[in-house]
Amino acid sequence: MLQDNWPLVLLGLRIGVAAALYLFLLIAIRALRAEVRARTMPYAVALPTYGVATPSASAPTALVEVVPLDAPARVGDHLEVLEYTGEGGEPGRLAGRSYALRGPALIGRNVGSTIVLPERQVSSRHARVFPDRGAWWVEDLGSTNGTYIGSRRVSGRERLDPSTEVRFGPVVARLVRDTAKNGAR
């Protein structure tokens, strides 16, 4: 029976190998993409498959586990620049601008920063704002003119509340929380 249809068996084998290769590639590339996405997704980190495996977990372990942070850190949050005085006493150019916060943000004069504040008194890498434990935090990165919450100079990391004003050098800003939607994504 098998011998009679031998060419058919071989053809099946050949198609099977090709199909298996592409099925594998499809699944693997999707999984890889999902993981990279999860890692760069706002408020979420992917739990790695390659943490130290627990004996209780059966092998093979789950491939990708996306773990979004719970509220209240939300997609719609943004950093709004308030009135401030620019160089030579003129009104600052950035006043009224609003920057969406989509994850850890580097603030500075550098073009590579997440939020670019092109003012001379802002250091090239001034501070960073990042989500953790459901809240936003600010950390000064050794800037020349300092980062202030209210009138207090920030040293180390400090929690950022919507009510307080935060100042990067001359630029005064305020965290605005998104109240419309709940949850990430």
């Binding site: 943490g51 977990a57 586990e65 773990v67 979004p68």
Partner: peptide, 18 residues
């Protein structure tokens, strides 16, 4: 499982499993 250096372990976390 546990994983070293995870700062999120303490927070409330929703798990989406593939």
């Amino acid at each position: 499982g546990s994983f070293e250096g995870g700062s999120f372990a303490a927070s409330t976390i929703a798990t989406v499993r593939r």
